[in-house]
Design a binder for these strands. Structure first.
Length: 555
RNA sequence: CCCCCUGUAGCUCAGCUGGACAGAGCGGCGGACUUCUAAUCCGCGGGUCGCAGGUUCAAGUCCUGCCAGGGGGACCA
């Protein structure tokens, strides 16, 4: 029996209590849905519900009495062995071992699809993240969004939505010109402009451009800057793609700002906003009246000199996403873009959308990094950066992705490079992966004995040991963890769950011998435990896959 | 001046969208391998959940006000 099924049984018991007259309460007070929780304390049964405390007030009776009324009917549910009323009015439910053990069979039957749900079915989600300027290598900040964004996409897909991962390339504007000028200067041995890019990579990139196009050096300005700009852009973008590929982060759409302007999407977007009646002209500029929706000031779309602002691009880009058929546009931005949130929301409002549904801007806090006990300041302009590439070289893809994914994005993160490399073995990712490898080893050894985990003759009722119950309970939680991780856009919940599951397995392994010792005969209990192992390995593998982390068979 | 994020054990952080005595890892101390991977397990110490009010049967969790740290305000990118 799954927690969801048990929760339905709780509601059924409430209905039965009302039908029999044991419980008198207004129909409107009974929730349409409820959930059961795993109590922290094992003495409180396998599951607990607080439904009686919720109904106490509308029923006008003490929680304890309401609980007793419901318990009487819940106790008759097949698979439920005991119902106790405890504390201020909790219903503590204990399941038959067989009803609980059934979970293992369900996991093995569902295989790689266990944990998937239809919680977000039908939604078309556009997930934009990283969106770095193509003027330099991806750095540590981008690395966090690469790991979290990719995992978030996988988690949301597992909840039944369709997801397009999108990378927005800011490939036009003053920054690009400065990038081009910096490359041209480096190629000709001139000093890099003060407002240009200073990193050592600029010299390398310039040399690469010159190698391919020796004639660029002799071009007159501004053609020389433009030639270096565009050639450097192509090289840098290719480098970013290659590095992300190595980090197992893949995008469905690479959206070019320049292409969007050329395609007329910007003009179409502005026209649509005019239709909605929120555009006006003043002081020679074109404005969007975002104050209609709570912004503290109106925003300029087209400057007095006729140039489009970045806000115009961002606005048009959002409208373009919607025109391409996406219901929900998720933005994963760094804390330094916090000022965008309200503006983007008002754009949605101006376009006639629901800013609480169609657009969702997630602000991630910055990553600090300690090296030799000191904070490394990140500044792309000064060239003082830790790149994604360097980060992966130091800690590896699995450890890097996992470490960045196991924290909520709205908490600032401090990582110590030395600790991450020296304490590799203590990293939680190895703890989880080790559980997977350990189970794989047990299953290999079982195969040597001619034992294969199978549903034939699986007797769930034999799994009576406390640690077996703990493990089964954990396995049952996975579906809800994935669904809530998707709904809340918090993939770190999957990582934390995996750590708990791995710990629960290690304790089970410690307390419950799976395979027969020596020349003992194979029992049904051996078979049942082997199936439990197979189910656990499946959930570990499914969870690690959601984070883009490998599930090794051996370590 | 205004807005956002954070404040939980010595350190790094969880806390299941309000529940029953506040958790994990690391660090410290002490135990457990003659048979399934000891990258594991078990035990011991360690916290006025920033402060003060409020809502509730119930607050680390929700509301208000302070305090501290970080980030941000533009016809910048």
């Amino acid at each position: 029996m799954t927690p969801a099924q048990l929760a339905d049984s709780v509601l059924a018991a409430v209905r039965a209590a009302r039908a029999s007259g044991d419980l008198v309460v207004d129909d409107a007070a009974v929730p349409g849905q409820t959930k059961v929780e795993r109590p922290k304390n094992r003495e409180h049964g396998d599951y607990a519900t607080n439904i009686a405390m919720q109904l106490a007030k509308p029923a006008g009776r003490p929680p304890g009495e309401v609980a007793e009324a419901i318990a009487k009917h819940l106790a008759t549910t097949p698979g439920v062995s005991r119902v106790d009323v405890a504390g201020p009015g909790f219903l503590n439910i204990t399941l038959d071992a067989a009803a609980q053990g059934e979970i293992a069979a369900q996991v093995v039957t569902a295989g790689a699809t266990y944990g998937r749900s239809d919680a977000l079915a039908g939604q078309r989600v556009n997930l934009e993240f990283i969106s770095a300027n193509p003027t330099g290598p991806l750095h540590l900040g981008h690395t966090r969004w690469a790991a979290v964004g990719d995992a978030m996409g996988r988690v949301i897909e597992a909840a039944g939505a369709t997801v397009a991962r999108e990378f927005y390339i800011n490939d036009r504007g003053i920054q690009m010109d400065r990038f081009g000028a910096s490359l041209a200067a480096a190629a000709t041995g001139e000093p890099v402009p003060e407002d240009g890019y200073q990193g050592a990579y600029i010299g390398d990139l310039a040399a690469e451009v010159v190698k391919e196009h020796p004639d660029y050096v002799d071009l007159p300005e501004p053609q020389r800057m433009e030639a270096f700009r565009d050639a450097g852009y192509a090289l840098q973008l290719a480098q970013q793609k290659a590095v992300l590929d190595g980090f197992r982060t893949h995008f469905d759409v690479w959206a070019s700002e320049r292409a969007m302007h050329d395609s007329g999407a910007v003009d179409r977007g502005l026209a649509k906003l005019r239709e909605q009646g929120h555009v006006f002209d003043a002081d020679g500029a074109v404005w969007l009246r975002t104050t209609d929706f709570g912004d503290d000031k109106d925003r300029v779309l087209v400057k007095a000199d006729g140039a489009l602002t970045y806000f115009a691009s961002d606005t048009a880009y959002y409208l373009d996403k919607r025109a391409r058929g996406f219901d929900v546009c998720i933005y994963l931005l760094g804390a330094d873009h916090h000022g965008y949130v309200n503006r983007l929301r008002t754009v949605a409002s101006c376009a006639g959308d629901d800013p609480d549904f169609n657009i969702q801007v997630l602000i991630g806090q910055l990553v600090k990094i300690l090296k030799d006990g000191e904070e490394v300041k990140l500044s792309k302009r000064a060239g003082d950066i830790v790149t994604l590439e360097e980060f992966v070289e130091e800690v590896g893809v699995d450890a890097g992705r996992y470490t960045l994914c196991r924290y909520p994005v709205d908490s600032p993160l401090t990582l110590d490079i030395a600790e991450m490399t020296l304490q590799k073995a203590e990293n939680p990712v190895f703890y989880v992966q080790y559980a997977h490898a350990r189970i794989s080893s047990v299953i290999r050894n079982a195969a040597d004995l001619g034992l294969v985990a199978t549903l034939d003759g699986f007797d769930a009722g034999l799994l009576e040991h406390e640690r077996e119950g703990d493990l089964l309970g954990k396995l049952a939680e996975f579906s809800r963890v994935v669904a809530s991780a998707a709904e809340l856009r918090e993939p770190h919940r999957v990582a934390r769950f995996l750590e708990e599951l791995a710990g629960t397995y290690h304790r089970f392994y410690d307390g419950c011998r799976v395979l027969p010792m020596g020349d003992e005969a194979v029992t049904d209990l051996n078979r049942a435990r082997l199936l439990l192992c197979a189910a656990t390995r499946q959930v570990l593998a499914n969870g690690l896959d959601l984070l883009g982390v490998s599930a090794p068979e051996r370590m």
